[in-house]
Simulated scan of single mutants.
Amino acid sequence: MLTAKQHELLLFIARRLEATGISPSFEEMKDALDLKSKSGVHRLISALEERGFIRRLPNRARALEVLKVPETAGADQSPASENGSAEPKSDTVVPFKKSTATQPTAANDIVEVPLHGRIAAGAPIEAIEDFNSLPVPAALLGPGEHYALEVSGDSMIEAGIFDGDYALIRRTESARDGEIVVALVDDEEATLKYLRRDGARVRLDPANEMYEPQIYNSSQVKVQGKLAGLLRRYH
């Protein structure tokens, strides 16, 4: 069963795909559903995906495919009765016919990547949280699930990572020594550093001689992802 907003979003995506062959952008979905932020769109998309109504196509522009749509015109919650209660209504689902419109080529694809706030390239800062999304050229991403972080600080400048850059991170809980990772320390603070292991210890190395390595017990550090690419804003 779908909520009213899930149903509304599913139909909006399906109609756009039927008309153009390209699903709407997250900004268009936010505006169509009168949501305050794109994070609400992310939650709705995830719910529809979990219920088997849509699937995401990795590294494709507007990367959504509708698999089925409810046959009923309304949401699966009927209007409230006189006593204020709402009677659930089952939806009959039917396969969704894909449009034959031509999809854009992979070289021009743009992927909406979740933007999880700022991360320190310096001393660790508070753990990152979800709040927005970032359009990213698909050519910058490889396989897997990705998210983006805005870099704060200069401890990784010798690796070509500068304050204000957007670090593109492939989500993973494992990494090899020498890889640049997002490390969560004590489940509270996140930082972007080179990962080094030394027995029961983990060393998080900066790429700036002005900073000292950070050394922790291995139980204190969790890998949240590793660097896949960078985006830079020029003023």
Rank of each mutant, 00 (worst) to 15 (best):
D154L: 14
A159E: 00
A139S: 09
R51V: 01
D165W: 01
I54G: 11
L184S: 14
L149R: 07
P70W: 01
A106F: 01
E27R: 05
R60A: 15
T102V: 15
K193I: 12
A121N: 08
I128L: 12
T72A: 15
L11A: 15
I54K: 01
A101H: 02
A228L: 07
K89S: 09
V136M: 05
V202G: 14
P70D: 12
E145Q: 10
K222G: 13
E145T: 09
S133N: 06
G164R: 11
G144L: 09
L9R: 14
V93Q: 01
R233D: 12
S23R: 00
A123M: 09
V202R: 01
D165Y: 04
V223C: 10
S39H: 08
R203K: 11
F131P: 00
E65I: 09
T92A: 15
V202M: 12
L204S: 10
E209S: 13
A47C: 05
R62Y: 10
T105M: 09
A101E: 02
Q103R: 12
I161V: 11
S46G: 05
K222P: 10
E209K: 11
A14R: 09
I22N: 08
V41C: 08
V182M: 06
N132G: 11
T72G: 14
P135S: 12
G178W: 00
